[in-house]
Design a protein around this nucleic acid. Structure first.
Lengths: 213, 213
DNA sequence: GTCTATAGATTGATAGAC
DNA sequence: GTCTATCAATCTATAGAC
């Protein structure tokens, strides 16, 4: 349910999207000018306006291009976990539910530079309460997050949905801050943490916190 | 140790700093122009350059004005916890150590609108790996964070410092995402969560995660 | 210290030739 | 579709009157 499809882009459009994504992550969306994008992508200055209409629609294209496949993968994992639990006639456990969200996210963030860049953009969007693209982002995230709270609520009926809601926020915050682009000023040792170990660490960290009385 | 002092500002300078802080949080640092700041602060357009030199130094002033007292408070709490443990001749427990960092932060974030705004700015800085003010921010945070890892390491000798480091990142991420300005698109119920309950929730969530084998 | 005026650079967007 | 040229708006910063 809720699987969305991607628009189809030409080669030039993809070159612009790729370049914009990288520059948005490095310098922030608003500090990145159309001239920076078009010169780095080696296309004409007028190309962005010709292919996307304006700068805002280019930003939307960057969001959709990454978030639609990522959320489809998250949804697929959650569906699988819930389906397997249904077969066994018992609720999925906390770790499985959180893993269905954390695992695809970390795998995505570690896939390549472009994906890392996108996660930086997403994190920035989540932090800023007044961001102009927040509404689009929310509309893409809400269905999945609501399903997660609902699934957790079935597994942990003694914990109120609002508390689960709060702890899911903690979980997402922990996950976002675990990513390479976001390092607090400690040693950078962990940056090369084995990806499977990282997924296990976050999932365990969040699960024990989630199940607290 | 490591207590820093604040510079002394005139009324006009404070008016500019207050206004800038709010606009930085609402629209981002780079999207906020000197005209937006000076017109909202009801001072002349030239006032920022006269009082602070340039835009960058104004941003630094906003950072220092908030981060110095906040970190002094965090340091004081950590010193107290470590001192009490020393008297009892046993290491401080995980919850106390994390509480010394989380409690002053959440109290600060809930103090007033200006403080909430500042936390949004800090979160944005932490997210962006290439931010030009990241170095200043890191230099202010590193001493305290190193002490936290050291204290946790004494309490949890079976867990490697790099793992504690990683879990401290999870903790900070969870804390940042718990704040009012940063809401994932779920119900907004939690936004008015009782402040003491919130501090307890985050501290417990992080402590159980931190102590995992 | 405050203000106006303006310099000098950069921005997003578009018109029109090819 | 691509390109050059350019517009109108906006930006930071400063000079100089008061």
């Amino acid at each position: 349910m809720n699987y969305l499809e991607l628009p189809c882009y030409t080669k030039t459009q993809l070159k612009i999207i790729d370049t914009a994504e990288h520059l948005f992550a490095c310098h922030g969306i608003h500090s990145t000018t159309l001239r920076m994008i078009t010169s780095a992508a080696k296309v004409n200055l007028a190309a962005v306006n010709y292919h996307f209409g304006n700068k805002e629609k280019l930003i939307q294209a960057v969001l959709l291009r990454n978030l639609i496949p990522l959320n489809n993968e998250r949804q697929q994992q959650l569906d699988r976990v819930l389906h397997e639990a249904e077969i066994k006639c018992q609720p999925a456990n906390t770790k499985q539910i959180l893993h269905s969200f954390i695992m695809p996210t970390i795998l995505f963030a570690r896939r390549n530079v472009a994906c890392k860049d996108f996660m930086t953009i997403v994190a920035t969007l989540m932090i800023n309460p007044n961001n102009e693209f927040r509404q689009l982002f929310n509309s893409l995230m809400t269905p999945l997050l609501n399903q997660l709270v609902q699934a957790l609520s079935a597994t942990l009926p003694n914990i109120s949905p609002s508390t689960l809601n709060l702890r899911l926020q903690f979980t997402i915050g922990a996950m976002i801050f675990s990513m390479r682009e976001i390092d607090i000023p400690l040693t950078d040792q962990h940056l090369d943490t084995d990806i499977n170990l990282l997924i296990t660490e976050i999932t365990s960290f969040a699960s024990t916190g989630m199940e607290q009385p």
